[in-house]
Design a protein around this nucleic acid. Structure first.
Length: 113
DNA sequence: CCCTTGACTATCT
DNA sequence: GAGATAGCCAAGG
């Protein structure tokens, strides 16, 4: 394993494992939060290499769609895992189950900031 | 080295 | 808003 992967994986895994239940982050956001901007495409590989289980299903594309091919095995699996915690996929896009009516959709999705 | 491959993104049409 | 396009960047062949 390259030195890059060692540090990268550690940082990515740390971020992903801390995504709260019912919330999602984009690959780019995870990469940025981990201190590796422009490495969105490598986030998935880091997660795959993780030895411990991760809430990988809480990571979606920046446009709110799932990264897996529609109808693929993992697409179905991710959709199910997310719906289990109140995050639904409608028309291929992530939509949170109605929660706080006073919050804007983006805030419910991506959190207050 | 050069080329291809992604669980990606931002920016046009 | 769905496609196409051009960046992106480490890995592997």
């Amino acid at each position: 394993m390259s030195e890059f992967q060692k540090k990268f994986d550690k940082a990515i895994i740390n971020i992903v494992s801390n995504i709260p239940k019912g919330r999602v982050m984009s690959y780019g956001e995870v990469a940025r939060a981990a201190g590796f901007p422009r490495h969105a495409r490598m986030v998935s590989k880091a997660m795959s290499r993780s030895s411990k289980p991760l809430p990988w299903f809480r990571v979606v594309r920046a446009d709110h769609t799932l990264a897996f091919a529609a109808h693929s095995e993992y697409f179905i699996k991710q959709k199910k895992l997310l719906s289990r915690e109140g995050v639904l996929i409608i028309n291929g896009k992530v939509v949170p189950l109605q929660t706080d009516k006073n919050k804007m959709l983006d805030e419910v999705l991506w959190g207050p900031e």
